[in-house]
Amino acid sequence: MDRLVYTAMTGARHVMEQQATVSNNLANATTTGFRAQLDSFRAVPVVSEGLPTRAFVVDATVGSDFRAGPIETTGRALDIAIRDQGWLAVQSADGSEAYTRNGSLKISENGILQTSGGQTVIGDGGPIAVPPDTKISIASDGTVSVINDTFQPGPSNTLGRIKLVNPDSKTLLRGDDGLFRQADGTPAQNDANVRVVDGALEGSNVNPVDSMVNMISLARQFEMQMSLMKNAENNAAKATQILALS
Rank of each mutant, 00 (worst) to 15 (best):
S40W: 11
V5S: 03
D39C: 05
F56M: 06
T53V: 10
G33C: 06
R35Q: 15
L26F: 00
N28I: 13
V15D: 05
G50S: 07
A29Y: 06
V5N: 01
E17A: 09
T7P: 11
H14G: 04
F41N: 11
A27W: 07
G50Q: 09
H14Q: 14
Q19W: 12
T10I: 04
F34W: 06
V44Q: 09
S48I: 12
A43T: 04
F56P: 01
E17M: 13
V22N: 10
A20N: 12
M9S: 15
N24F: 14
G50P: 02
N24V: 12
T21H: 11
G33H: 14
R35M: 10
Q37S: 08
L51E: 09
A55W: 00
Q19M: 13
V47W: 03
M16S: 13
G11A: 10
R35T: 13
T21A: 12
T32C: 02
G33T: 05
V22Q: 13
T21F: 11
R35S: 15
A27H: 09
A55P: 02
R13P: 03
S48Y: 00
E49G: 12
T10M: 10
E17C: 00
E17L: 10
N24R: 15
Q37G: 09
L51P: 04
V44N: 00
S40D: 13
N25I: 06
V5T: 05
F34G: 00
G11R: 08
N24D: 13
A29K: 14
H14N: 14
V46T: 00
A29E: 15
T30F: 09
Q19N: 10
A8D: 02
T30C: 00
R13D: 09
A20L: 14
Q18C: 09
A55C: 01
A43K: 08
A12W: 01
T7N: 10
G50I: 04
V44M: 02
N28P: 10
H14T: 13
N25L: 02
T7I: 12
T21C: 06
T10D: 11
A8Q: 05
T10W: 05
A20F: 09
P52C: 00
V47D: 06
M16T: 11
F41K: 13
A43L: 14
Q19D: 02
E17W: 03
R42P: 10
T53M: 08
M9K: 08
V15Q: 09
R54W: 05
N28L: 04
G50E: 07
G11V: 01
E17Y: 12
M9V: 10
T53Y: 09
T32M: 07
V47G: 08
Q37V: 04
L38P: 01
F56H: 09
V22T: 14
Y6S: 08
F34Y: 14
T10S: 14
A8Y: 03
D39M: 13
R35C: 08
A36N: 00
S23T: 15
L38A: 09
T31Q: 13
